[in-house]
């Protein structure tokens, strides 16, 4: 970890004023300190956000939930309103990392979490995301943990967050503040596909700071589940995960939100699958069918081809488990 200057502003305005091309904000530090130790991120200035407040969770008048950037993953996961209205988010958060890391990690930090691609994480290796134009080591290297959706010829790195998958399904807005004022960025537009510029990961300008994430109002009567599949039972990034939110009328699906993790270069909304499901009967067979649609455009590589089937399984099971809650609820 190289030397840097630590700046500890006490207002958002000062924090933005302190930001530059060679600086980085720090919240919990679970990503930044890790990557600074590896030499992957080497900011000259680290701007601390811990004195900025931004640690409230509030319900807005329109029913949306406004989450301060600094709310820890632990607190967000166990917030009574989140547990009641957005259980899929609570489950996703609790499936990520570990108790200790969740106590540190912040909401904004999780939105800004960076890929776990080991080639990205080693400055000695070529990586288009870290050093544009140097090539992608994973393409011909080991790519078991890499993405099959949203990839480009320049980058196949997976977005690692669980929280973001749930937020993608719920629908959210990222609120940012910069020198030119406040912007609201729809969650699905916040993270960028790698395309020709995998070094550009998000729609955030260099002076901007995430201040809040606002969740869409919960779908009335929705049932949901977050299912995470991985090698060991805990403390591992997803090989495939699915956040599923469904509303039903009788046996018919009236609305569906399906988001995927572990298989894509950004938190991934399976919009084709969602569209195909709405209006259909909520049956296991239908879930399997729409799951296939989600991976129609998948580009598997040498070691990650299994993620296509695993991801389909995640969708089908997550939908089934969500719908089962509804039927159990009816029986109560």
């Amino acid at each position: 970890m190289q030397s840097f200057e630590l700046i500890r502003p006490e207002s958002v305005k000062d924090a933005i004023g302190a930001q530059s091309e060679r600086s980085a904000y720090i919240g919990g530090g679970t990503t930044l300190v890790d990557l600074m130790k590896l030499g992957v991120m080497q900011p000259d200035h680290v701007v601390d956000t811990n004195r900025l407040g931004l640690d409230e969770i509030e319900v807005l008048d329109d029913g949306r939930l406004k989450i301060g950037a600094r709310v820890s993953n632990s607190r967000l996961a166990t917030d009574a309103r989140v547990e009641r209205d957005y259980p899929v988010l609570s489950q996703a958060l609790l499936s990520g990392a570990s108790t200790g890391l969740r106590n540190m990690a912040t909401t904004a930090g999780n939105v800004m979490q960076r890929t776990r691609c080991p080639y990205f994480r080693d400055p000695a290796k070529p990586c288009n995301k870290r050093e544009p134009g140097t090539g992608c080591s994973a393409m011909d290297g080991i790519n078991r943990n890499h993405a099959v959706l949203g990839t480009s010829e320049h980058c196949i790195a997976t977005h690692p967050s669980d929280m973001c998958v749930a937020m993608a399904a719920i629908g959210a807005t990222v609120v940012v503040e910069g020198r030119k004022g406040t912007r609201e960025i729809p969650f699905e537009d916040f993270h960028l596909l790698p395309g020709d510029h995998p070094e550009r990961e998000h729609d955030l300008r260099s002076d901007e700071l995430i201040t809040h994430v606002v969740l869409d109002a919960p779908l009335e009567g929705a049932v949901s589940t977050y299912l995470k599949l991985r090698d060991r039972a805990s403390y591992e990034f997803a090989l495939a995960s699915c956040a599923a939110i469904v509303t039903l009328e009788g046996t018919k699906v009236t609305a569906a939100r399906i988001a995927l993790g572990g298989v894509a270069t950004k938190p991934w909304r399976a919009v084709d699958a969602e569209a195909a499901l709405v209006g259909e009967d909520a049956t296991a067979k239908m879930f399997e069918q729409v799951a296939l649609l989600a991976f129609q455009r998948a580009i598997p590589l040498e070691h990650n081809a299994f993620k296509v089937e695993l991801g389909q399984q995640a969708i089908a099971r997550a939908l089934r488990d969500a719908v089962q809650q509804a039927s159990q609820g009816e029986h109560q």
Binding site: R116, P118, N145, R232
Partner: peptide
């Protein structure tokens, strides 16, 4: 120790 997978409590 994140990518070399060893058993954890939950396993």
């Amino acid at each position: 120790l994140a990518d070399y997978i060893v058993p954890v409590h939950a396993d």
